[in-house]
């Protein structure tokens, strides 16, 4: 049962870094393989899912992140409007899942979104991450899935020094503690 409650709803300021949990944000996982699937998503959302690895596409409302050759994550730039919070899921479910073009799964409660902003973001992440951020950092819209402090995360480079990080709900409190702890030392 979706309850749209984050275990943390906090925001902290450190020197050169601002971290905040931004919830509730709608997140939808898409899986599909064929060309019809891509075209259909493009038609429904007016955004084409990116086929190039480690990239994203989007408009002022929605982002589509590349996760693998046949998997994407949609998330919204705006918090959930509870009056019509299921419209996007319903629309995609009816157009994609029902006609067996692909799979649409609402993962709003699965992931917690943490926004990291400031010139020290990459310094913080480098403390516990095997990923090389050299190219990623200058490429607006780039996406990576990697580990931070041994925890699986999806990171979206929203803007220069402005990242949205997705972490599984059950790991979110632990990662939040780690981020806060690390932020004191950079």
């Amino acid at each position: 049962m979706l309850n749209y409650n984050s275990p943390i709803l906090d925001s902290k300021n450190y020197s050169g870094l601002k971290i905040s949990v931004i919830e509730p944000i709608i997140k939808i996982n898409l899986r599909g393989k064929n060309r019809d699937f891509i075209t259909k998503i493009g038609k429904e959302l007016s955004i084409i899912p990116p086929t190039e690895a480690n990239t994203s596409s989007g408009n002022e409302n929605l982002n589509i992140l590349w996760l693998s050759p046949d998997e994407w994550l949609i998330y919204s730039n705006n918090k959930i409007d509870f009056k019509n919070n299921n419209s996007l899921e319903d629309k995609l479910f009816n157009e994609i899942s029902k006609v067996k073009l692909g799979a649409v799964t609402n993962v709003t409660d699965h992931w917690i979104m943490i926004n990291l902003k400031g010139e020290k973001v990459f310094e913080l992440l480098s403390g516990g991450c095997p990923y090389n951020f050299n190219d990623f950092k200058n490429l607006k819209g780039s996406v990576t899935q990697t580990l931070v402090n041994h925890i699986d995360v999806i990171i979206h480079n929203k803007d220069i020094n402005d990242l949205n990080l997705f972490v599984r709900r059950s790991f979110s409190e632990h990662l939040w503690s780690w981020i806060n702890d690390g932020s004191r030392f950079i």
Partner: peptide, 11 residues
């Protein structure tokens, strides 16, 4: 072959 060069700890 999909994501490019990554550290072994991701595999």
């Amino acid at each position: 072959p999909y994501c490019g060069e990554r550290d072994q700890s991701e595999f």
